[in-house]
């Protein structure tokens, strides 16, 4: 019962926080400062990222894109973590937890791709750039999809769980390496802008952090609701097989 109440509180918090973040981002947060030294084409440095489009709308997506991206990575950690727990305990509940975490990761990774794409459209005027973060998230999407493709191709329950756990762990190890190497190996064809989030002023930081916690809460809520659904399903299955006996 306690978990259930926590889920509802988190759901309320997620709604309030993301809405507040949204409003703050558009109405309160100071627009990106123009950098005098980067005067070419009215470019701006925003959140450490160089933004060339003159319209300020592009920057607003920053407040959602980055929190979503961070959340996806945080949830992906749990896929690996529950996978490891499964390998140690062989308790199928951990396999279900890992799978749900991967589902939530997929949602957030896709959202990251979507918001990232909007960003590139507004900031650089193109739909897709092989920019380090977008590239990494593209690979991350492929990894999460691969996780589900793998699950679907194994018939035996336990073997499926073991393989999924192993792949979840190695994919989670691979993701930060992708991130690092994509940034460190510059491509000659597409000059990339490497930015570090930071350099936000008070109102920007507030909007960002509020949106951030809102997204994390959303991730948690989706996870909890899916987990409860799975538990109910499991109980139904158990009852069915009991009836068959």
């Amino acid at each position: 019962m306690d978990k259930r109440r926590l889920t509802y509180i988190a759901l309320a918090a997620a709604g309030v926080l993301t809405l507040t973040g949204f409003l703050l981002a558009f109405f309160v947060a100071t627009p990106a400062q123009t950098i005098a030294t980067l005067s070419t084409g009215g470019g701006r440095l925003f959140g450490g990222v160089f933004v060339s489009h003159p319209i300020d709308f592009g920057q607003k997506i920053f407040y959602f894109h980055v929190p979503v991206a961070i959340t996806s990575f945080a949830v992906f950690f749990f896929t690996a973590y529950f996978g490891a727990r499964f390998l140690i305990t062989r308790d199928p509940a951990y396999d279900v937890k890992a799978r749900i975490a991967a589902e939530v990761t997929l949602i957030f990774v896709l959202l990251t791709m979507l918001t990232g794409d909007l960003w590139t459209r507004w900031a650089w005027g193109v739909w897709w750039v092989w920019e380090p973060r977008l590239t990494t998230y593209f690979i991350l999407t492929l990894l999460v999809v691969a996780y589900f493709v793998l699950r679907a191709s194994v018939d035996d329950d336990e073997r499926r769980a073991v393989y999924a756990a192993v792949f979840g762990i190695i994919a989670f190890i691979d993701a930060p390496i992708s991130f690092a190497i994509t940034r460190l190996v510059p491509s000659e064809l597409h000059p990339v802008v490497i930015g570090v989030p930071g350099g936000l002023d008070g109102t920007q930081l507030a909007a960002f952090l509020i949106a951030m916690f809102g997204m994390l809460a959303f991730g948690f809520v989706i996870y909890q609701l899916r987990w409860r659904e799975e538990r109910v399903k499991e109980r139904i299955e158990a009852l069915k097989s009991a009836l068959e006996d």
Binding site: I139, L142, F167, D174
Partner: peptide, 16 residues
């Protein structure tokens, strides 16, 4: 399945 698992995991190594 091998291709689906292999290519994204290999991505950083390939890039380097």
């Amino acid at each position: 399945i091998l291709a689906v698992l292999f290519v994204p995991l290999m991505y950083p190594l390939l890039l380097a």
